[in-house]
Design a protein around this nucleic acid. Sequence first.
DNA 1: TTGCGAAATGACAACGTTGTCATTTCGTTA
DNA 2: TAACGAAATGACAACGTTGTCATTTCGCAA
Lengths: 336, 336
Amino acid sequence: MATMDKKNVSMNDVAIAAGVSLKTVSRVINEPDSVRESTRDKVHAAMEALGFRANFAARSLKLGRYGCIGVVLFHLSGGAVDMIDGIADAAEERGFALTMIKKRAGEKMTLAEAARRMSQLPVDGMIFNLRQMVDDFDTFEAPKDLKTVIITPMEHPTCSTVSDDQEGGARMACEYFLNRGHKNVYFVSGKKESLSSQCRMKGWRAALEARGIEPPEPLQGDWNADSGYAAGLVLADKPDCTAVLAANDCMANGVMMALRDKGLSVPDDVSVIGFDDELYKTIPNSILTSVKFRHRELGVRALNEVVAGLEAPSSRSRTLVSGVLVERSSVKDLRA
Amino acid sequence: MATMDKKNVSMNDVAIAAGVSLKTVSRVINEPDSVRESTRDKVHAAMEALGFRANFAARSLKLGRYGCIGVVLFHLSGGAVDMIDGIADAAEERGFALTMIKKRAGEKMTLAEAARRMSQLPVDGMIFNLRQMVDDFDTFEAPKDLKTVIITPMEHPTCSTVSDDQEGGARMACEYFLNRGHKNVYFVSGKKESLSSQCRMKGWRAALEARGIEPPEPLQGDWNADSGYAAGLVLADKPDCTAVLAANDCMANGVMMALRDKGLSVPDDVSVIGFDDELYKTIPNSILTSVKFRHRELGVRALNEVVAGLEAPSSRSRTLVSGVLVERSSVKDLRA
DNA sequence: TTGCGAAATGACAACGTTGTCATTTCGTTA
DNA sequence: TAACGAAATGACAACGTTGTCATTTCGCAA
């Protein structure tokens, strides 16, 4: 059972070994039913013996498509794992592979630059994961033959976008407070440049203003617990503070710890809601009510949108994936 | 300024538009110095006007390589983000893109199956991210023309492997305890099927046995805080328990909370060390000493190993990336 | 101006597949 | 057995690049 030394085994090699024509080998692969069983077996045997594997480049060249979707990671954060997971699973299901490139740390990558690089790679369409603002966002035009979907809370003039409904999630949390008799809601933000943080803040503002409440000055955090703790120390001194919305769970936890250290109880004195619902992983018996986004679903939707748009790349849609409020006991009902 | 309607603009189209030969266009792209400046400008102008982008499939077919490295995600966990980040950055730096496929939830994927699928895709080499055991691990043979690197703590008979030194990290933590006068170390494990957990446990055992200490029965956890809390309740009742090594920070936190709820102090009564050093993100003023692995570095090494092996796919190496003990104040020095 | 070597450019084949269309083989019926 | 339509198979071109080698153009010295 000698193994060939030739670098790559081609269909032609298989054809010769099996004593059939090149085209017949092609048929065995692409439309097996159209070839007689005895012939098929001969060909399969030859493929096996020679270790044949179809050449991706040649196949794509002929077919004019790759069966790959490009993913550009402008930003790779914790929540991105689930999103990538969703994209990858959906891709798998629809028979696509992913081609990935990433903005390097410190590098300044525009959408145009990302598109330029992607269009040199084997992709039929692409997904941009964009969590911060980028210079050419509004002026960017996607290649006409490459369906492009941007994961971002901002609307884009020509590309399809997919996003969690961060604003809606924040509104939902605020209304949850207000409906339970709270007269005001304080807000602890994440990093300034984060679009997520900006959107959550926007939703918070909107919800308060919709009820004619003047939003108090938001407290600036940086996503980590320590910044939440600092914010909590400040909030503990505000007598009108009965409800705090923190832009993520880590900061919410910091806030809660600070309140306790100041002798205040959650939820009896102050109610708190966070975002992402991940505190239970780290804190035993966590009581924090939290707005959870379905990142996996987000990825699935993004991929499906790309695939759906492969035939009509210039189509445009906007998808919002709603969040879910995971209720625990960190919010007190003041009406009771 | 009319835009062409032709689907794909080829080099030939550019050549005609610029009034030069096909080959000259090719030269402008691949060896610009070999073409006269005036000609080059004409060609560039034509490319611009027609919106030319090189065809990946044709180029790869001719060159016999893709400039892509395949990544197979058998398992996608939190720590994987940093690793992917490292892989992606290193790939970027060396001019490679990534082609990714993922094991679907519930699907049972063997190494052979992964290799088979990857070898139909545009890749010059591949990386398997394997955090759990898989049926054909020992018998697997990588395609002879496709350099394969496996990220896994296990040694493989024929493939290169890269791993954090989990065992060494656990040993380091144990010795840290023992060197400070602790007579024994209790262990809280992660999920049974996790290789990380198994390796950490192995290192813990080895460190104790090296000093002639009989390791106590390990406590079974599931990575989450609640399981750590449960373990902590048990440990609080053991009078000889002065040191606890938990297989991750979340469980370590659970252990600490349980100890406190039982009236014990960390570190005065019991010392604790965790893994991953991520508690500070969630807990303000975190005191937990923790073993941190450099997942990013892991990814970088894996990619570099693949690229280095592209010319000699059958070469084999084993890389261990050491962990770092991040010291805080959760360990008491009993010698003092 | 002519001739020469070097630089610039071009013609053509090849990479390994699939689509088109022609040809061969098969199973059936007259 | 002959004749026929359907099924199976094959020959050849084409996809868009790059490598090889031949040809043209250029700059410069005689």
